[in-house]
Design a protein around this nucleic acid. Sequence first.
RNA 1: GCAGGUGUCGCCAAGUGGUUAAGGCCCUGGAUUGUGGUUCCGGUAUUCGCGGGUUCGAGUCCCGUCAUCUGCCCCA
Length: 434
Amino acid sequence: MSKDNAISVAPPRGMRDFLPSQVALRDWATAAILSTYKRFGFTRIETPVLENIASLRGGDGGENLQLIYEVLKRGEKLEKALSEGAAKDELADLGLRFDLTVPLVRYYSHNQSQLPNPLKSIQVGSVFRAESPQKGRFRQFTQCDIDIIGVKSELAEMELIQATSEALIALGFSNFKILINDRRLLSALALHCGFVQEKAALVFIALDKLEKIGLDGVSKELAGEALDPQATAKLIQVLTVLAAAKKSGQTSYVDLKAALPVLDEQAMSGLEKIISTVSEISKGRFSIEFDPTLVRGMGYYTGPIFEVKVPGYTSSVGGGGRYDNMVGKFSGRDVPACGFSIGFERVIDILTEKEFKPQTEERSIVLIVDPERDSGLAVLNAAQELRSGGNIVCIQPRKKDMKKQLDTLLAQGYSHFCVFRGQGSELEVKSLGG
RNA sequence: GCAGGUGUCGCCAAGUGGUUAAGGCCCUGGAUUGUGGUUCCGGUAUUCGCGGGUUCGAGUCCCGUCAUCUGCCCCA
């Protein structure tokens, strides 16, 4: 093949191939998460990877709307759109989902009559964002979501946090920290400071960076946004108290609460309930903490929001929150909902970094055969005989250098091998480790 | 969008200005061995992302370009 028309064999930017050992780890992690969630009564559902573009755009996905992979119309519809000089965003009629929440709400709205109420769903699936890829950040990645639709009380949040925590523990995590805040408090704060509603998002983004860029950084950032200077000053004043409280280690929510102009008693008492309950059930295995600077990116949150931090890792390994207005957008009837998503790729990254290897109990045998000599029937029968003992059996033609072949097989995780010596001869299984 | 790293056979990879560009994987030819965890010999890049330049001479230096990775921003 000439070089000019050689096709690149690398996967598209930001997307990955997985080797058998990587898939084994991912399968193990998925199984651990699923079995935990199932014990909480969550049931698995599935939705398509493609959605109508209108659903995705109407889903209030915040920044992610810019990152949708759009799928062009096809055939006559495309010709028509092109000939009519349609705008760019009228050329697509479908798009790849950028999260699992928007599709879930669409799914719920459509299948409501056949679904239990409340619905406790599990979703594991790929989502897509046309973003600039980086370490731990891809254009296709897996999300693991649990959602409760139809429960208004904080019991939903509590259960989501409990289930997620148990899942993380099942994955071998410990001492992680759950940060919690409430969108209503953030709105109240912005209002209290005197920001207009439309500028609230900018304020939130700056707030989110407090930990990273510090008070001065936030102050600078807000100054650059042409916001009401009086409101900014007031916000900085509040943040100063918060930052001081955080710095001095007074991170208990009571102290932070004292520093906040509490304008939403309902939100505050909800948080208190969640925090005290979760603290109780954590039995010291993990912690939960009020963080008034927690924001989260999605535009659709309406109430409590949360995120999981693992010590030693800067990015969060999970997040979620309440989105009570979303179902209404699709079905015209508001139904309370909230969800929690495990950052599956982050979990896998951390497990990989820890060189975690899932244990397999089964013996795995490679049956080495000579295709020149051995008949297919004899080989398949021999393999089946070995399988009947509960073993994993893989048939492989013998290679020239058997030592190397066996070393490779050992590295691939096989525990035993058996050289097939021809029909009728005894099957002698030997250990690969030597 | 800004900053840095990398780009050599299908894959991984040595090479840091001087004749014919290591090696491993994969593929493959053969010899050797008591039905097989032995040993050995071979075959696969007129060419180093692409385009220019410097030089007697460039994979190796410079400029541009593209691709990819990393950091910032933002997010799972």
